[in-house]
């Protein structure tokens, strides 16, 4: 069992990282989107390995089944020939590279500082029957305020999008 789990983890992890790299390097934007989907799916697979079934489902339904469909929907309307002929790296690539390096440094530093907290609790041994309930419990009692703030943020974004779309149409 242990080896099977490990093999699956390595499979999903490699797939996730490889498709993430492919996603940013593909010139064809639709191919990029497909690799993003693969990344999201393999992350979902890792959630499943961790017995976090609800998270797995949320990842699949929301990100892959919902958001990415809309992404692809928009991407398909884009004129592909133009994006194919565009230069992939523009003159400011070294600025972006520097920023990325700084960000990576920050991450590494944060992980290094907080390495003591990284010791994860042992994985739940059996399929916990209260998975969904546990998530709901945490969201609606413990993290009620952040949850509501996040919803308001999304609402604001939604209203903003509607307003912008209306202005364009009118």
């Amino acid at each position: 069992m242990q080896t099977l789990n490990q093999a699956l983890f390595i499979f999903f992890a490699v797939l996730a990282v490889a498709s993430a790299i492919l996603m940013v390097t593909r010139r064809n934007i639709v191919h990029g989107a497909v690799f993003l989907i693969t990344t999201l799916l393999s992350t979902a697979g890792i959630f499943l390995l961790l017995q976090a079934e609800f998270l797995f489902i949320v990842q699949v339904i929301l990100y892959v089944g919902g958001i990415m469909v809309l992404f692809v929907f928009v991407i398909m309307l884009v004129n592909l020939d133009v994006s194919m002929r565009q230069v992939q790296f523009n003159r400011q690539w070294f600025v972006a590279g520097a920023l990325a390096l700084v960000l990576a440094g920050q991450f590494l530093f944060a992980i290094w500082v907080g390495r003591g907290a990284l010791r994860l609790p042992a994985m739940a041994s059996e399929i916990s029957p209260k998975n969904t309930e546990a998530v709901a419990d945490a969201l609606f009692s413990h993290y009620m305020l952040p949850f509501e703030i996040a919803s308001i943020l999304l609402l604001v974004a939604m209203i903003g999008a509607v307003v912008m779309a209306k202005r364009r149409a009118g």
């Binding site: 079934e53 489902i57 699949v60 339904i61 998975n131 969904t132």
Partner: peptide
Amino acid sequence: LNIGLLFILAI
């Protein structure tokens, strides 16, 4: 699965 229905919907 204890999330059977969601799984079918998602897939």
